[in-house]
Design a protein around this nucleic acid. Structure first.
Lengths: 216, 216
DNA sequence: AGCTAATAACTGACTGGTCAGTAATATTTT
DNA sequence: AAAATATTACTGACCAGTCAGTTATTAGCT
C-alpha cells in the first residue's frame, strides 16, 4: 500500500517507463468503454499516475489512442508481412497461418477490442478512422490480396474476385472480435473461436479450390 | 418556412403523427452519431418539434431507441420468418432470398446503421444489448439455423456445424453494414454490395454442397 | 354562429452532473 | 538552488431530463 512507509516518496520520476504503462492502461480502458466514453481519469488511475501526467506524454486523447494502435496492432501486421514475404509452401497454408495468427494474437488478447472501438467511433472521430484505415486496413487488405494473387498465379486457387474474397476472408474474424466485445456477457457459453476458425478454413478451402481438386 | 404566414399557428397538435416522426428522426440521428453521442435536441429539431415533446411520447433516450429498433428491424424479421414458414422449394433458394432481402431491406436503408450502433454501445448500455440480443439476434440466428437444418434434412446440404455456419453466413452481411457506417466516406468508390453478395452466395453454394454435386 | 372556459399538446430555459484539458502548486532529483 | 516531473484544483463546454408557462384545440354555453 502507498503510505505504508512514511520515508518512501509519494511518487517517483520514471520518465522512460511511463509512456508504455499509460498506453497499456489506455488499451484496457478504451477497450472496456470505447474511445468517447473512456475517462482519462480512469486511464491515469489504471496506470498509477495522475491525470495531469498523461498530458506530459501525450498531447491529447486522440494521440493517446493512436499510440495504442501503434503498439497493439502494427507489430502484428509487420510480422504478417514478413511471413508472406518469406513464404515458400502452398498459398493455402499461408492463409491458414495468417488467420490462425489473427485468432491467437489479436482475438485472444486485449487488442481484440480495437476493431470494435474503431467501428464504433469512426463516424464521430473521422481523424481516427482515417488513421486506422491508412495504417491498418489498407495494409491488411493488401496482404490478403497478395496471398490470393499468389495462389491464383500458382494455380492453387481458382480465379476469384479479389476484393470481394478478401472481405469474405476477413468478415468472420472481425465479427468474432466484435462479438466478444459486445455480447460475450449475454451468451451462456463463451464463443468457440476454434470451431469457427475450423469451419471458416474448411469453407475457404472449398471456395478457393480449382475445379479439378483441393488447393492444398 | 415557419413564420412566413403571420396568421399560421406556430405549431399544431398532431398527437397521432408525432411518434412515428420522432422515431424516424431518431433513426437518422442515432445512425449518424451513435446512441451516446446523439443529442435529443437534434432528434427533436429533425422531427420539427421541441425537446420537451420527445418526453411526452417516450420516457427516455433508451426507450426511444428501442422504439427505433422495433420499427426499423422487427418487421423485416417477421417477413423473413413468414418466408421460411411458407417455403416450398430448395433450401438454398430460401437462403439466397433471405440474404438478398437483408441486403436490400436493411443494408441499403437507413436501418443499416443499427448493427453498428448496437455493437458500438453494447458495452456501455447493457440493457440495450440485452434487448437487441433477445429481440433480434436470437431470432435471426434461429431462423438461419432452421434453414440449415431443413437443407440437411432434405439432403441438399452436407452435414455442417450449425452454429459456426450461421456465423459464417451472417458475417459478411454484417460487415458490409458496419463498413458502410464507418469507412464508406474514406474509400473512393462505394462498396459493391452486389458483388460481395454474389461472391458470398457462390462460396456458400460450394461450402454447403454435398460431396456428390451442387445443392441447388 | 360567436363567445368563453377547460384541456391537451407543446415549448424552451434551466438544473445537475460529467469530463477534456489547463493552471497553479508541490515533490523529487541533480 | 534549479530543473524536471508529478499532483491537485479548477474552468468551460456539453447534454439528458425537468417543469413552469404558453398556445392550439375542443366542448359548453348562449
Amino acid at each position: 500500500m502507498p503510505g505504508d512507509d512514511p520515508a518512501a516518496p509519494r511518487w517517483r520520476r520514471r520518465k522512460e517507463a511511463r509512456p508504455r504503462e499509460i498506453v497499456d492502461a489506455a488499451l484496457t480502458v478504451f477497450g472496456e468503454r470505447g474511445f468517447a466514453a473512456a475517462r482519462l481519469e480512469d486511464v491515469a488511475a489504471q496506470a498509477g499516475v495522475s491525470k495531469g501526467t498523461l498530458y506530459l506524454y501525450f498531447p491529447n486523447k486522440e494521440e493517446l489512442f493512436k499510440a495504442v494502435v501503434r503498439e497493439a496492432i502494427l507489430p502484428n501486421l509487420d510480422m504478417a508481412e514478413r511471413l508472406l514475404a518469406g513464404a515458400q509452401g502452398p498459398s493455402f497454408a499461408v492463409l491458414e497461418t495468417l488467420l490462425t495468427l489473427f485468432a491467437t494474437r489479436i482475438l485472444k488478447s486485449r487488442a481484440g477490442a480495437i476493431p470494435k472501438l474503431i467501428i464504433a467511433e469512426a463516424g464521430n472521430f473521422p481523424d481516427l478512422a482515417r488513421f486506422y484505415y491508412d495504417e491498418v486496413i489498407r495494409r491488411a487488405f493488401a496482404l490478403l490480396a497478395a496471398v490470393l494473387e499468389r495462389g491464383m498465379a500458382r494455380g492453387e486457387f481458382r480465379p476469384v474476385d479479389v476484393d470481394s474474397t478478401v472481405r469474405l476472408i476477413v468478415a468472420p474474424m472481425l465479427m468474432s472480435a466484435l462479438w466478444r466485445s459486445s455480447f460475450e456477457a449475454l451468451e451462456g457459453r463463451p464463443p468457440d473461436v476454434a470451431a469457427l476458425l475450423a469451419a471458416h478454413l474448411d469453407a475457404l478451402r472449398r471456395t478457393l479450390a480449382p475445379e479439378g481438386g483441393p488447393p492444398s
